[in-house]
Amino acid sequence: MTKKVLIVDDEVNIVAALEFLLQRSGYEVMVAQNGDEALQRVESFAPDLVLLDVMMPRISGYEVCRRMRERADWKHIKIIMLSAKGREAEVSKGVSLGADLYVTKPFSNNELVGKIGELLAGA
């Protein structure tokens, strides 16, 4: 069965690139532009993995991550946080809030696809 990935980012350019990349890599892709929409899509789309940008207006990626991890039925969903912030403290914050992986921008497309594959294979 095709695995489902939800991309959450408010920047259309990165979303366009990621959406294309993941579709070509064989995933079913859904996009959310902000935190609220992200939580709705998790409910309706039931993704296997969420690519979550940290810096978003209103509800930040950290907050989305925290709320997702409060739901027992969403425990299995993998979360990769994407961030333009690369400080040690921010990475550990993301990980301690329940992200499976913290990737700083810019990243390599190949590596990102590889990581997604690894996470979903282990699931």
Partner: peptide, 25 residues
Amino acid sequence: LAAGVRAPTANVRAAAENLAAFPDM
């Protein structure tokens, strides 16, 4: 500089790598 440059660089890189990786698009 670090904060301001990371995000746009990520966008360029993702797009450019797509262009390179999928010449058939």
